[in-house]
Design a protein around this nucleic acid. Structure first.
Lengths: 340, 340
DNA sequence: CTGAAAGCGCTTACAG
DNA sequence: CTGAAAGCGCTTACAG
């Protein structure tokens, strides 16, 4: 207690006292509002420097009723896709003088609930949700509690603004690429049974197969560790134990594609000689894999930028016109696919 | 403005009014402090539910002078090492009812400065710094501003608590493993010229070489993208253009090792047949690489747990006895190294 | 077991 | 161009 008092930092009052002005003059100087004469301003800045004064953000928030804090609720920050988005969201927020509080859900659904509740308390001005389990009650909760929120890679809902890559089209591009290379037996390794992104990617795959008159369909669904190496590895192993190995794999994430690489190598087979592989995301690992992975590029920076911009509009009380943003994917052809 | 007023949420006063008690009774009920009769408590809880009241964390912080917010200043959240640490720090903090605000520096040193200043403002109760550029002035600043801080993978300083793996020992283990397999010409690919972690790893390499009477020394230093794929890739390319290719590589990060894999493959060579490779970190990518990467395992969960625990002690005004924590590394032997 | 009062450090109308 | 006052929503002694 004594220690705390001893290390007590200067307040606006202290500055005002030293500069011989009122606190609101100090406030005006600090916030560059109002009209303060150059001499007074000078005196105030000197006092600020002398006392090493810093404006207390909590007191400020208390008064302004905004914290300039954005919540970022991600499924799993150790997933490169999410950390790239987190990095981009953080950069955009920083540019707008907002800070990011990180809510990492992990595989623990309870955590999501608690964080959602915390978000409603008012610590944050708004929330960006990335690819967490999409449940209707989440969106209902956000609506009821009136928390400004934007969804990235989540449940499509018309009540809450959403940003994502066009997953159906992306998966279509990936599958078509394989078909055009002459592949007929193409298996899809899906990221999750319940995740909407996964469902849309599967849909794109099936649509492409149908459009080209291919009746073969095989979809393996990860049982553990959504989108991760292990999911791709295990699915591929399963496939290898089957009789008829496909000539190509379309994995719903780069991580899963690389997991599949490993299972393929362990079986003594080679990519793309024995089986072609296409991934999804175009994270850095894709271009450094051997062979370099053909994949779908997601415009992460743009996704994050749109989400932040949308959220800031919401926070500002605006009603954004376009709230369902679908960004175009891009097929990146590398060395993991070949003509058959 | 009208809208905001209309959506105004309930305060303690409202609850007190409805429950016909004073605000401090509500406060006691909400915080489970003091002694409140069961009937009163019941009445208060009912009112809380009815009004959907949530305690305002800002007002609370204003009064208690603590925010229960921890700052996490990382060099680069897209680096798996950092995202793993971030994930673990977040989990530990969550368990202690602290939330994490993410400060991502990137390659922009200016960002670090601004975030450091923000940390001193009092938004956060304490700061964990992960592997940012180690400069004396940072520690001086933290000391002067009296911000509770713990360093992970940073500058060793006696003034601020530090947690890291024993890098010298770890690098020694990695190098010795190669030496014991008969390698004599072992090149080290370093993560950075200025980063202390990188320096210590280099030191461990050199020490092992010296201890075994090997005079060969070759250290390549990444010029861009600290610790990343590209750094390892470029260094390895450089090496391949040289005359005498070493028989083994010790890379200071798994990402760089995998980057080296790619350069090796592009040169038509194979791991470990033509060159053995050891990494550092044991991120998931290491075990899924082909061939699976021999590496040094860092105890990430423990590192994060110790850091959070240390920080919480600091925040609580305690003076932790042991402030320089060095955790033991573990050599994980996989398929990327072979006897020669 | 419960209430009245002060105050955390700011900002925001408003007055002069 | 500058100051006096109210108040944001809590918690913390203190009184009863």
């Amino acid at each position: 207690m004594e220690r705390l008092l001893a290390s007590k930092t200067a307040t606006m009052r202290d500055v005002a006292g030293l500069a011989r002005v009122s606190v609101q003059t100090v406030s005006c100087v600090v916030n560059r509002t109002g009209t303060i004469s150059p001499e007074t301003r000078e005196r105030v800045w000197n006092a600020i420097e002398q006392l090493n004064y810093r404006r207390d953000p909590i007191a400020r928030s208390m008064r302004t009723r905004q914290t300039r804090l954005i919540g970022l609720l991600v499924l799993d920050i150790t997933n490169p896709v999410h950390s790239i988005i987190a990095s981009a969201v953080e950069a955009c927020s920083f540019a707008e003088d907002y800070k990011v509080v990180l809510y990492n859900v992990g595989e623990d659904v309870q955590r999501e609930r608690e964080y959602l509740a915390a978000a409603a308390e008012g610590l944050i001005d708004g929330l960006i949700i990335v690819n967490t389990t999409d449940r209707e009650d989440t969106t209902t909760f956000l609506k009821n509690e009136k928390v400004a929120a934007v969804l990235i890679d989540c449940l499509a809902t018309t009540t809450i603004p959403t940003v994502a890559v066009d997953n159906v089209k992306a998966a279509y591009l990936a599958t078509r690429h394989l078909i055009e290379q002459g592949h007929r037996r193409i298996t899809h390794i899906s990221g999750s049974a319940t995740n909407l992104m996964a469902q849309q990617r599967q849909q794109g795959y099936e649509q492409a197969m149908a459009d080209y008159g291919l009746t073969y369909r095989k979809v393996l669904v990860a049982r553990s560790q959504q989108w991760h190496y292990r999911a791709g590895y295990e699915s591929m192993q399963e496939l290898l134990h089957d009789d008829g190995l496909p000539t190509a794999i379309f994995a719903a994430s780069d991580l899963m594609a690389i997991g599949a690489y490993r299972a393929i190598a362990e079986a003594g087979l080679r990519v793309p000689d024995d089986v072609s592989v296409v991934g999804f995301d175009d994270i850095e690992a894709a271009s450094y894999a051997v062979p370099a992975l053909t994949t779908i590029r997601q415009p992460f920076a743009e996704i994050a930028a749109k989400a932040v911009s949308l959220l800031l509009q919401l926070i500002g009380g605006e009603d954004p016109e376009i709230t369902q943003i679908l960004l175009p994917p891009e097929l990146i052809v590398r060395q993991s696919t070949r003509e058959v």
